[in-house]
């Protein structure tokens, strides 16, 4: 796949990074997660928006929708080879953390800028892998168990209490909320406040400082 890459007038390099499906998936999942958090916290009794009954109905519908849509994402991630962008590494991890802890204030360049064939920096790889492979499936499994509570006996599930499942699901929800807060903030760390968000709509990412991509970073190692 050839990726169009241009140098813009202000010296930044721009390139097509997020495919159409990826962008759709991102925003669709974002909408689902935010609505699930809202309705979920209403079912939990923390907020009041739709009324309990409607909150439950909407939450169940969104949850099942998410489960089905996630299956398409899994299919996509494996058939396109995008999974390689999620392989964790510790290389440059410290540098990236140091950048967000110090360098960013000193105006230093990002140690691992985005490249067409290296979407994620080491910190992102770790975060998104944990999210896509652990936290989100955990939330889907606990949510599905919660949803199927009345059929546990028929399904042969014993020794599990609704409270345990509900609290696990609640802890998962808080973990996702924490991710959401930090994630939304991190989108403002591009060359402008909304640069990353814009990129997630257009698919075209603009990177301030051009640098070489190390072999290990490449999607398909040479």
């Amino acid at each position: 796949m050839s990726t169009p890459e241009n140098t813009t007038t202000n010296g930044r390099r721009s390139f097509y990074l997020y495919t159409r499906y990826e962008r759709f998936w991102h925003w669709f999942q974002a909408l689902l997660i935010m609505l699930l958090l809202l309705t979920g916290f209403e079912v939990h009794g923390s907020i009041s928006l739709l009324g309990f009954e409607r909150a439950v109905t909407v939450h169940n519908f969104l949850g099942l929708t998410w489960l089905i849509a996630f299956a398409f994402f899994v299919f996509w991630v494996f058939t396109t080879g995008e999974w390689k962008q999620y392989v964790p590494t510790t290389k440059m991890m410290f540098e990236v953390m140091a950048y967000y802890g110090y360098g960013i204030f000193a105006g230093q360049p990002h140690p691992c800028p985005k490249r067409p064939d290296a979407k994620h920096n080491p910190l992102q790889r770790m975060t998104y892998l944990s999210l896509a492979a652990v936290l989100l499936p955990f939330q889907m499994v606990t949510g599905l168990l919660y949803y199927l509570y009345n059929s546990w006996a028929e399904m042969g599930i014993t020794g599990l209490s609704l409270e345990v499942v509900a609290v696990a699901h609640l802890i998962g929800a808080f973990a996702i909320l924490l991710f959401l807060i930090v994630h939304v903030y991190m989108t403002t760390t591009g060359h402008t406040l909304f640069a990353h968000i814009k990129a997630m709509f257009t698919g075209v990412e603009e990177v301030e400082h051009a640098s070489e991509v190390a072999d290990w970073e490449k999607k398909t190692p040479a």
């Binding site: 079912v43 939990h44 009794g45 923390s46 309990f52 439950v56 409270e163 509900a166 609290v167 609640l170 802890i171 929800a173 808080f174 909320l177 924490l178 807060i181």
Partner: peptide, 17 residues
């Protein structure tokens, strides 16, 4: 659900958030 709010977990979660 909605009655049993697991106060400790909920409190911790919102504090962390």
């Amino acid at each position: 659900p909605g009655r049993d709010v697991s106060a400790a977990v909920t409190g911790l979660g919102f504090t962390a958030s």
